[in-house]
Design a protein around this nucleic acid. Structure first.
Length: 581
RNA sequence: GCCGACGUAGCUCAAUGGCAGAGCAGCUGAUUCGUAAUCAGCAGGUUGUAGGUUCAAAUCCUAUCGUCGGCUCCA
């Protein structure tokens, strides 16, 4: 297998796989006692797991990198050998590699392949580069712990991540992209733009929204409410605490207990809601429902609290308290295709509005499930039909569904090409059963209803985090907490500025003034850093003519604009939810 | 929860067992200026928290809370 002639994906995989072997060889040279785990190529690079004290590797990453360069310089041929399983087992026993021996035990074939480069031998399917010298552009990126074979309870190995490319430019581009992602980190921008904070005094995984963040969230929430009402959803609301017994009925107390906040007060046990479904179900159950009423679509911006493990918390992306744009659709099984189709359209409309890409995945019945296989088959088919009718490409994830029903997951793709979990649509056979949810059919029979759980942004918090990174903090006009900032050249223009400001506020434009006694350049810089879409620059010229000079976020100037024309431009862009200003 | 790295002024960081410091932000004053940083001065700290070792702790040890990178999880 020639690996060096082009740079297709397969070849990149070979390059990275060999890079991981070279890294493992370097680690073994420096730390002979390190035990080899596994070392595959992955999406953006490669890793290798070692049984060794993590501190040692994290403090010696540079040394490992240097040793790798030596091995590359030695240009050792990488040779494949076919061995019987017994022979291979003997080799790795001798080399005191227990993890490799364990892997061999699990292989059923009679023979296995090993790859040899100099003194280093690894159990491996290959293929590999011809020699270590073919690797040129690589970088070790981080050290982290990882469970052996990915199972909690197994020993924790130390994983080194790295990446490699065929050209220096590709490597630089990749590292540049990582830098760009760091610049856009929503945690950093959230602080710099004064949108939100997370305080350890308040508690990990809980967000406090500062005025600008709260405004931004309010804009998104209002947009969501409007769009839901347009699509036949009804707004509902439910309390944050409820009796534990409700969650006994729903089954959450048995299946989800470790993630729930429970407390007792008086003689009773209470739950802080981790989900909105039971409350919506109670609304459904509050009276007898006819087939004529269906489908019923209940929507709530429902704030829920879940006890997430401390290690999984991450900015706005993974929290303990968050707000889902949650809806539950109660319908007749025959309505499923149409309802799911509508949700798909809705989700796509939202992605388009925010200029995000999307990828769909259909997850089918897992090994452990409830409900009849027949129901599963029909529901899965309904989801598939809905996807096909909307003309959408999707991937299948066999056995990845929830235990209570199949689902469609939509991943959002941001401007850097990163994927984020977004909308989900889940069919549920479980809760209608547990709560005995029925409707009266045309023939008077009381039949079981089908329930669909769905979110179209996911959670407001996570979506905000993704959005902040997607736009790099420079929100489109309709979302910008501050749309316009008026900058005066000297204090002489203050009254003109104040007048203008009031005019805009009256028209619903979110305006701010910077009347500080500072140089214009200083104020412009501040407004740029604050990523304000429009600066209105007011000096002697403007004050005399009664016009404004509008400086866009990208530096372009619009001169001699009448205030009312500017206000109209802004108002129109907001109305159309234009992405570009 | 697990592995590792961390936690010093609002922010970014310095001080490696020996007097806690800088830039930005803030405040005061001067300056009245045209598109990414005007000048000067002032103030800002129980070094996350609680213990311990030491003549002496930001620095070493223990616990705890939190943050970051991963793993696992994500009904």
């Amino acid at each position: 297998m020639k690996a060096t002639d082009s740079k297709g994906d397969l070849n990149l995989e070979i390059l990275r796989h060999s890079a991981s072997h070279i890294m493992a060889q370097a680690v073994k040279r420096l730390f002979p006692k390190a035990k080899l785990g596994i070392g595959p190529a992955i999406k953006n690079g490669f890793y290798y797991d070692f049984g060794i004290d993590g501190t040692v590797l994290s403090q010696n990453l540079d040394r490992v990198q240097k040793e790798m360069r030596k091995i590359i310089k030695e240009d050792l041929p990488i040779e494949k050998e076919v061995l019987t399983k017994e022979k291979a087992t003997k080799v790795f026993r001798q080399r005191e590699e227990p993890y490799k021996v364990q892997l061999l035990e699990e292989i059923e074939d009679e023979t296995v392949t090993v790859y040899r480069q100099g003194e280093f031998v690894d159990l491996c399917r290959g293929p590999h580069l011809e020699s270590t010298g073919k690797l040129r552009f690589f970088r070790l990126t981080s050290v982290a712990g990882a469970y052996w074979r990915g199972k909690e309870g197994n020993p924790m190995l130390t994983r080194i991540y790295g990446t490699s490319f065929y050209t220096e430019k590709e490597l630089e581009d990749y590292l540049g992209k990582i830098e760009e992602a760091k610049r856009r980190d929503h945690r950093k921008l959230g602080r710099e733009l004064d949108l939100f904070s997370i305080s350890s005094e308040l508690g990990a995984g809980l967000v406090i929204y500062h005025p600008k963040g709260a405004l931004l969230r309010d804009i998104i929430e209002n947009f969501e409410k409007e769009e839901h009402l347009k699509r036949g959803y009804q707004l509902v609301m439910s309390p944050h605490i409820s009796r534990a017994a409700l969650w006994k009925t729903s089954g959450h107390l048995d299946f989800y207990r470790k993630n729930m906040y429970l407390f007792s007060s008086g003689d009773e046990e209470w739950v802080i809601k981790p989900m909105n479904c039971p409350a919506h179900i109670l609304i459904y159950k509050s009276k007898v429902r006819s087939y004529r009423d269906l489908p019923l679509r209940y929507f709530e911006l429902g704030t829920v609290y879940r006890r997430e493990e401390s290690g999984v918390l991450r900015g706005l992306l993974r929290l303990r308290g968050f707000t889902q744009d949650d809806a539950h659709i109660f319908c007749i099984p025959s309505q499923l295709v149409e309802e799911v189709g509508k949700v798909l359209q809705f989700a796509i409309f939202m992605m388009d509005t925010f200029d995000l890409g999307y990828h769909m995945t259909l997850s089918t019945r897992p090994a452990e499930f409830i409900g009849s296989p027949d129901h599963w088959e029909r529901a899965t088919q309904a989801l598939k039909d809905a996807l096909r009718e909307e003309g959408l490409d999707f991937q299948m994830a066999q056995g990845e569904g929830a235990f209570y029903g199949p689902k469609i997951d939509i991943q959002m793709e941001d401007v850097l090409g990163r994927l984020w979990q977004g909308p989900t649509i889940q069919v549920d056979f479980n809760l209608p059963e547990r709560f005995d949810l029925r409707y009266v059919a045309p023939n008077g029979e009381r039949k079981r209803v089908v329930m669909v759980h769905r979110v179209v942004l996911g959670t407001i918090e996570r979506f905000l985090g993704i959005l902040i990174e997607h736009v790099g903090g420079a929100f489109p006009l309709w979302l910008s907490p501050v749309q316009v900032r008026i900058l005066t050249v000297t204090e002489k223009e203050n009254s003109f500025a104040e007048n203008l400001h009031q005019q805009m506020v009256n028209k619903g434009v979110r305006s701010e003034m910077d009347l500080r006694n500072e140089l214009l350049g200083f104020k412009v810089r501040q407004a740029e850093l604050d990523k304000i879409p429009y600066m209105l620059i007011i000096g002697q010229k403007e004050a005399q003519k009664g016009t404004v000079t509008a400086r866009k976020r990208n530096g372009d100037n619009l001169r001699d604009i009448k205030p009312e024309d500017f206000i109209q431009t802004v108002t129109e862009a907001v109305k159309e939810k234009r992405i570009e200003i």
